[in-house]
Amino acid sequence: MMEKMDNKSRQMPYSETEEYLDNLVSRVTDKAVEAGKTQKKSFRPLWIAASLAAAAAILLFVLIGRGVENTEGPIDKYLASLSDEELLQLTSYEIEEWEEADAYQIEY
């Protein structure tokens, strides 16, 4: 049976002609060359942009890190100036809670 198939010289049951396939291969080849060249041209700017972005991110990270370390806002300064006793008083201070109804009661 396979010998019989060999006589069919490896035909395929499709309608694509040699001419059609020659054109297809030629088209595919042109597109591949074009795509290859486009990739090569765009490679350098892309690489430079990626490097710049990475450098900017590192710089930003370093600056923010330093900023966090060095920044001391007015609240920090105020808390630092308090004695332990004063701090204890501050944390044990109870906020007087208003009843919701009272809070929204409008007096004329």
Partner: peptide, 21 residues
């Protein structure tokens, strides 16, 4: 590029049929 075009000219159809199968 010339080598690639020659390669495709020689093997392009065979590759098409290989993929098609």
């Amino acid at each position: 590029e010339k080598g690639f075009r020659l390669l495709m000219q020689r093997y392009g159809k065979a590759l098409y049929w290989h993929i098609r199968r």
